[in-house]
């Protein structure tokens, strides 16, 4: 039965139910134990499962990521909490060279079923080392799957799929979404990886948005509807492998595409989606596709500057209007 709970509760419930179902699932990271994690994602789990399965670690990102690889190869299903996507850079070799590649280079003799959880994106003046959206690096690494839920329901269904998947999955938690509420079934359920969801139907333009940008885009769509502009909002949910078919179907209907994402513009997820659509549905496009991204700069601290560089609902609406006014 569905009830209205917060994103963070849905995520926690998904992890709890998987840990109850499968004794090989465990969580490791800085402060995941009695403290309940940096944003309280694992609050209460240590009391239920004990410190053996809620393993506090030193601040050793490389070792967290690497021991997760080794444990996964031996039949465990580790969830490694790297806390912030910005900190994953300290573990890049283990994530991109080891976790991503060992199944392949061993010719399938080993598998690496693990989840790397990281918080991502803007929150409030977290500045240059705590505001990153670097997921395109992981998208660009064969062997990794990348997930970025935008609702409590998706948070639960996708963490369950990520844990059950036999390959390493990067599971991204947007800091602005932790307290968002939504309907979530109480019983365990899995949302398949690689399946997008149309979050709002429309006929004039397709927005492909991820993470917190989904909510911004829905707000913008609401405002634009009052101007007579009908926007369809698609959330890929899985960024790799992404659901190209759902995006193409939508663009074939609307003829216009705007990608809204929090990562940077160049070689980002938005550029990839535009390239994919141009390669596969150029004939459906009525106007040149565009993207709205975070500006190409180190993230500044001071709120006026920080707000200036990130997308927001007003900017999404403006980008839609500009696109539709551009020459066909």
């Amino acid at each position: 039965m569905a009830r209205r709970i917060r994103f963070i509760e849905a995520l926690r419930e998904g992890m709890r139910q998987e840990m109850e179902r499968d004794p090989s699932v465990f969580i490791m990271g800085e402060g995941v134990g009695p403290h309940g994690s940096a944003f309280k994602q694992t609050d209460g789990l240590c009391a239920q499962f004990g410190e053996e399965r809620l393993r506090d670690t030193p601040i050793s990102e490389l070792a967290i990521a690497g021991t997760a690889v080794g444990a996964a190869m031996m039949g465990m299903r580790p969830i490694a909490d790297l806390m912030w996507i910005d900190f994953s850079m300290l573990a890049m070799d283990q994530i991109c060279n080891q976790a991503a590649k060992l199944r392949y280079i061993s010719n399938g003799q080993v598998k690496v079923p693990l989840v790397y959880r990281m918080s991502t994106g803007k929150s409030k003046s977290n500045a240059a080392h705590h505001s990153g959206s670097f997921y395109s690096w992981f998208i660009n690494t064969p062997g990794l799957k990348v997930v970025l839920p935008s609702t409590p329901n998706d948070a639960k269904g996708l963490i369950i799929s990520a844990i059950r998947d036999d390959d390493p999955v990067i599971y991204l938690e947007h800091k602005l979404l932790f307290n968002v509420r939504g309907d979530v079934p109480e019983e365990p359920f899995a949302i398949p990886l690689g399946v997008a969801e149309v979050k709002r139907e429309g006929t004039d333009l397709t927005i492909v948005a991820t993470g917190a940008m989904v909510g911004f885009s829905l707000t913008a769509a609401e405002a634009l509807a009052k101007e007579g502009i009908s926007v369809e909002v698609i959330d890929p949910r899985t960024l790799m492998p992404y659901d190209g078919a759902t995006i193409l179907t939508s663009v074939r209907k609307t003829g216009n595409l705007l990608c809204v994402e929090e990562g940077f513009r160049y070689c980002g997820f938005g550029s990839e989606i535009i390239a994919f659509v141009v390669e596969n549905a150029m004939d459906s496009l009525r106007r040149p596709p565009r993207q709205l991204t975070t500006m190409h700069t180190t993230i500044p601290f001071s709120p006026p500057m920080e707000d200036y560089v990130f997308p927001n609902p007003e900017r999404v609406a403006a980008a839609v209007r500009a696109l539709l006014k551009s020459e066909a």
Partner: peptide, 21 residues
Amino acid sequence: MGTIGIVGAGIPVATGIALAM
């Protein structure tokens, strides 16, 4: 469980194998 081409990278992997054991 693998010979690994990045210097040092096998050490945490072996540590994780031991954790599973």
